[in-house]
Every structure is written in structure tokens, then in C-alpha cells.
């Protein structure tokens, strides 16, 4: 279940339930109605819809509980809300009350892609901001060349470790290790240090190359991948240093080898 899969008003209900439980209260129909500022009779159909989607457990005259799925989606919505508010307040210096209201709108209507780029941008400014005008030129170029996943390609940038916290939370940075067996991805960049990076380059592990995850070894490490029509094994730590383009981005034709000439 992703953001935008259910209607805006249902998302609001879910958010309210989440917040009530999060604050240590019990989520009863009465409380939900009070928060949303509507009558109790209009809450019930919404709750039924949410229950039908498998996001909450709800029967008449009982407390509302979130399912695992519901909790996950609600947390994402709340997170998103907080991020937008934080972005507006700390970076744009928007007064908090306005930011709060705007965040409520943003959280439902902004496309996931725009939102993702906003996160990347925020992190870049937050961590790489020392020389913003020069760095911004690099930012724009890197956003283009890495499929908007990695604005700062310098290997010793703070952004890589700090940024990964935010980005991992939002599923922004996808490493080779995250591919499931049989799944394919396109390489965005290699973060490994000197000798290993050179070795990977020599084996043809380069930006824009298509790579397929085959399997993990019986003990879980190393893993086997396929690229350029041959099979290669890597340890997990090496696989983690290979960044994959996020799946939803369509990118230009690869510069070098799409591989698999002979299957």
C-alpha cells in the first residue's frame, strides 16, 4: 500500500488513528470524530472502507486498531507530513502555523517523485552546504547523471553516511543488495574504495549497466549477479557499495554495454 492509493480523506483518518494510538490513547469512534471535527455517523463508513482495505481492525462498538499494513502506511504519511513541515520551517523560514497547514496539503497531493527529489535536495543542502554556489552546479549535473538519486558523488562526502539515514527511510537509495533474486536493476554509481572500485570497473560494473541478481550463497554471503552476459560473485559489503537507479525512473540509453549478447 503506497501513499495515494486511498483517498485523501481516508489518509487523514488513518493519520488521526495513528496519532491517537501514538499519543497513548485508545482510538474510539468518538475521539476520531472529535479530532476530524465531524459527526460520529460520518466516521463509521470511512472506518469500514479502511477495514476493507485491510488497514485497520474495526468492528461495531469496539476500539479501532491498526493492522501492520495500516501502521506502515500511516507512519509514512505522518513522516511525510513532518518532513515537509521541517523543510518549510528550517530551510524556507515559513512560519510554523502556515507550514503545518501546507504540510497537510502537500502530504496528499505531491507526487512521490517530486517528494523524493525534495528529500534529496534537502539532504544535499543540509550536509553539503559549505560552498553552496559551486556545489549547486555539481548538484544539478549529478542529479541528471545518477537518476536523481545521488546529488553528491564525491566518495568522502558526509552526505553518503548521513544522507543514507533519510534516504533509506524513504527507500531513496537502492543498493544492489536490495534486489531480489531474478530482479534487474541499472547501476547508478559505485561507492567502493580504491582497489575494490577499480576491480569492479575492470569486471565491467559501471554506471548504466544492467545487472541481475541471481542468488545468495547458502550461508547468505556472498551473492551472485549477472551482467554483460556473464556471472560474477561479490561479497555483501561490496554489493552494498553499488547504487542502483530507483526503478520508477526512466533513463537515457546506456553509454556502455547493455550486456547479454549471448544470453
Amino acid at each position: 500500500m503506497r501513499i495515494g492509493m486511498i483517498s485523501e480523506s481516508l489518509e487523514d483518518y488513518l493519520e488521526i488513528i495513528y496519532n491517537l494510538i501514538d499519543e497513548g490513547n485508545i482510538a474510539r469512534v468518538k475521539d476520531i470524530a472529535a479530532r476530524k471535527n465531524v459527526s460520529m455517523s460520518s466516521v463509521t463508513p470511512a472506518l469500514r472502507r479502511l477495514a476493507k482495505e485491510g488497514l485497520i481492525k474495526y468492528t461495531l462498538r469496539s476500539d479501532v486498531e491498526l493492522t501492520g499494513e495500516g501502521k506502515k502506511l500511516a507512519a509514512r504519511i505522518v513522516d511525510r507530513h513532518e518532513f515537509v513541515k521541517h523543510f518549510l520551517v528550517s530551510l524556507m523560514k515559513v512560519p510554523e502555523a502556515i507550514a503545518e497547514r501546507d504540510a497537510c496539503i502537500f502530504e496528499h497531493y505531491m507526487s512521490p517523485e517530486t517528494f523524493r527529489r525534495l528529500v534529496v535536495f534537502f539532504e544535499f543542502v543540509d550536509t553539503c552546504g559549505m560552498d553552496i554556489r559551486d556545489r549547486f552546479e555539481q548538484y544539478r549535473r549529478n542529479m541528471e547523471s545518477t537518476g536523481a538519486s545521488d546529488p553528491c558523488t564525491s566518495p568522502d562526502c558526509r552526505n553518503t553516511e548521513m544522507g543514507s539515514r533519510h534516504r533509506r527511510r524513504w527507500g531513496q537509495v537502492k543498493t544492489l543488495l536490495m534486489l531480489k533474486p531474478g530482479e534487474k536493476g541499472r547501476i547508478a554509481r559505485i561507492q567502493a574504495p580504491g582497489a575494490i572500485r577499480q576491480r569492479l570497473i575492470d569486471m565491467g560494473v559501471l554506471p548504466n549497466v544492467e545487472i541481475e541478481m541471481k542468488r545468495a550463497a547458502p550461508l547468505g554471503d556472498p551473492i551472485e549477479i549477472k551482467l554483460r552476459g556473464y556471472h560474477l560473485s561479490l561479497r555483501k559489503e561490496e554489493a552494498e557499495s553499488i547504487i542502483i537507479f530507483p526503478a520508477q525512473i526512466e533513463i537515457r540509453e546506456p553509454d556502455s554495454g547493455s550486456g547479454e549478447y549471448y544470453g
Partner: peptide
């Protein structure tokens, strides 16, 4: 690095493989 956004060794590897893959396409 500023021009291409990658360290030079990545660029060089990319050029060599680019040449190789172009050649393979051409001779297949």
C-alpha cells in the same frame, strides 16, 4: 570529476567498455 560527475577511473572504464560493446554490436 566536475565535468562528468564521476572519478576519472570510472570514465576510463566506461570508455573502454563502451568501445568493446560497440565493437561486439558491430561484429555480431
Amino acid at each position: 570529476e566536475t565535468l562528468y560527475g564521476y572519478p576519472p577511473e570510472v570514465m576510463i572504464g566506461d570508455r573502454r567498455y563502451g568501445f568493446a560493446s560497440g565493437l561486439v554490436k558491430e561484429v555480431t
